[in-house]
């Protein structure tokens, strides 16, 4: 377990537990929670609340043959579902499912300034991508519309306020304007989700933006 200093906020944890977030956000949250027992315990306590809601939300009669129909489904289906093995790679298990492998399976595309990205396929209500920022490289200065989450998987980045390393998640909203820099030593790999396009302040990044889908 990495030593995590930057966690999810209550709103996102509750949204994940209730199932109201877009798939792209769910992926980043599930990946962070795989690395962070503090947030895992928080998610599971919100799920406990969901269990209480389920207990007390009343009843609606199921069809007369529902039980036998369900037993038939059990007979027809797979015997048991086995847990997915715990990942020993850079990517926790939930991310494996979207990349079809670990870090070496990613199809990177350069987006300028030495930075590469890989957009992962999710529903369109929000977007999620992997970013590879060369050590010591500054990301374009950018503000945000909507909510953006950036989870560090390898290496680290710093901005004016903080340092983010493996497992740390940065939650940025509209009033955050910052200049993250990847730490010297190794490339920084991040998983970033956004429910709105980023807004770059430099001219070149702004021209690039529509093409790079960031």
């Amino acid at each position: 377990m990495p030593d995590i200093n930057h966690h999810l906020n209550e709103k996102l944890l509750l949204g994940y537990a209730t199932g109201s977030l877009p798939e792209a956000f769910n992926l980043v949250i599930a990946t962070h929670v795989s690395l962070c027992d503090e947030c895992r315990a928080q998610v599971e306590s919100y799920e406990a609340l969901g269990g209480e809601v389920l207990q007390k939300c009343g009843t609606v009669d199921v069809s007369k043959d529902a039980l036998s129909a369900t037993l038939a489904k059990i007979d027809a289906g797979r015997d048991v579902e086995m847990p997915v093995p715990i990942s020993n790679g850079v990517f926790p298990t939930p991310l494996h499912g979207y990349v079809n492998g670990d870090l070496d399976a990613v199809h990177w595309r350069k987006i300028g300034g030495g930075v590469s990205q890989a957009i992962l396929k999710t529903s369109r209500t929000a977007t999620v991508r992997l970013l590879r920022i060369p050590a010591g490289t500054e990301l374009p200065d950018h503000g945000h519309r909507g909510t953006e989450m950036t989870l560090v998987l390898k290496g680290a980045f710093c901005d004016e306020h903080d340092r983010f390393a493996r497992g740390d998640i940065e939650i940025a909203d509209e009033d955050v304007q910052h200049t993250p820099i990847a730490e010297e030593g190794e490339d920084c790999i991040c998983l970033a989700a956004s429910d709105a396009p980023l807004r770059f302040t430099g001219l070149l990044p702004r021209i690039m933006q529509p093409f790079a889908r960031i």
């Binding site: 199932g19 798939e23 769910n26 992926l27 949250i29 599930a30 990946t31 929670v33 795989s34 895992r40 998610v43 847990p83 997915v84 715990i86 990942s87 926790p92 298990t93 939930p94 499912g97 979207y98 999710t122 529903s123």
Partner: peptide
């Protein structure tokens, strides 16, 4: 949609 779940 798929529902990504944490590592089990």
């Amino acid at each position: 949609e798929r529902r990504p779940e944490p590592e089990d």
